[in-house]
Design a protein around this nucleic acid. Structure first.
Lengths: 190, 190
DNA sequence: GAGCCCATGTAATCAGTTACATGATTAC
DNA sequence: GTAATCATGTAACTGATTACATGGGCTC
């Protein structure tokens, strides 16, 4: 869970093998990290400033001859140390919030169609995510033969795939159960 | 995700079919809700006070003749209205944070054994959760024949089961992939 | 009498969200 | 010309965590 400023380690992690601007870090995160740890701009820039005052990163402004100004950050030895210490510690527990389950849990007396609609939206959302992960994995597998750097990245994609698969399977089963239940109810009610 | 004070709706939801104290609500949540929406005491009591000033709940202090004092809360018509309005809206997106994936993602250069240990801890944690959900579901199925109130609760348990299953399957596969990869590396390295 | 469960709360802090503000460049 | 992308930030707010504080009752 929170309360340990994980954002800083994500930034340090990204900088540990590349020099990047805040905006570029955001792009990297959107592709490979946001699925299991969302981060917004509102956190990135202030955290970057914090890391700079701590001496964990160094800023250099790129020549503004063309395009907007860019602040490039590189990691310092102190930053690497901070990152390693974090990596050496065992990982905390997972943290998840599913509003849809809350609403289903409390909507027993509510409208059935609303609930089916909710599950449908959930299904569509995560079928999309699932497809994304599947094609991602296929791509990785093409370049992944034997010894390489991407194995850990592959593991995170595999994780995403399994979870989205679980989501979509659940949604399909939930819809079936709901419609069966309410067909029966109607029958008895009439 | 956040920024809409979901806690208040959880409390209202619980009170919508029972009169409860804050402490009792916490117990209910630990059993049935905390798996998909964690809530702590530090949120419950202040939110309850807020709901009272808003006129969504009413407090009555139980007789303190035996045992510690207990503040019993009941929902008001205004509270029910607030709850229904929330339930009528479509659900927001899911929100998840997996520190283990972050650490794996960035620990490519790090120690392999650390990573295997991390995955192992994850596996143990979620095997336990999986078993919990399975026995929960079995219990529900015994009492669930046809028309009843627990269908929506059943759906949340089914969800938990599917997700924990995905977690444990991933962990097993990840371990296999890691050990295969590093066995190969060792061979080539020698 | 030590430790755990019952029971209620407050205070400090922070992580994270949202909205606002600005301005250049590129593509339709 | 207008919409999208590039690019960097600030400010206000609040949801949520953590730690602290208190006290009674039960059981070993």
């Amino acid at each position: 869970m929170p309360k340990e400023n994980t954002t800083r380690y994500i930034l340090l992690g990204l900088l540990s093998h590349e020099v990047l601007s805040g905006y570029e870090m955001k792009k990297r995160m959107d592709i490979a990290i946001s699925h299991f740890w969302p981060v917004g701009f509102g956190q990135i820039y202030p955290t970057l400033a914090l890391l700079e005052t701590e001496g964990c990163v160094e800023k250099s402004v790129s020549d503004t001859s063309q395009g907007p100004e860019k602040h490039l950050y590189s990691i310092t030895p102190k930053g690497r140390e901070s990152l390693s210490r974090w990596l050496a510690q065992p990982a905390d527990s997972e943290y998840a919030k599913y509003e849809i389950l809350l609403k289903l849990f409390f909507a027993a007396q509510g409208n059935v169609d609303d609930n089916v609609a909710r599950i449908d939206a959930f299904l569509v959302r995560h079928e999309e995510n699932l497809h994304m992960m599947q094609s991602f994995r296929a791509e990785l597998e093409r370049m992944l033969d034997g010894e390489n750097d991407h194995l850990y990245f592959y593991l995170t994609v595999l994780f995403g795939e399994k979870v989205y698969e679980a989501y979509t399977n659940w949604a399909l089963e939930a819809k079936t159960l709901l419609s069966a239940h309410f067909a029966k109810e109607k029958e008895l009610g009439k």
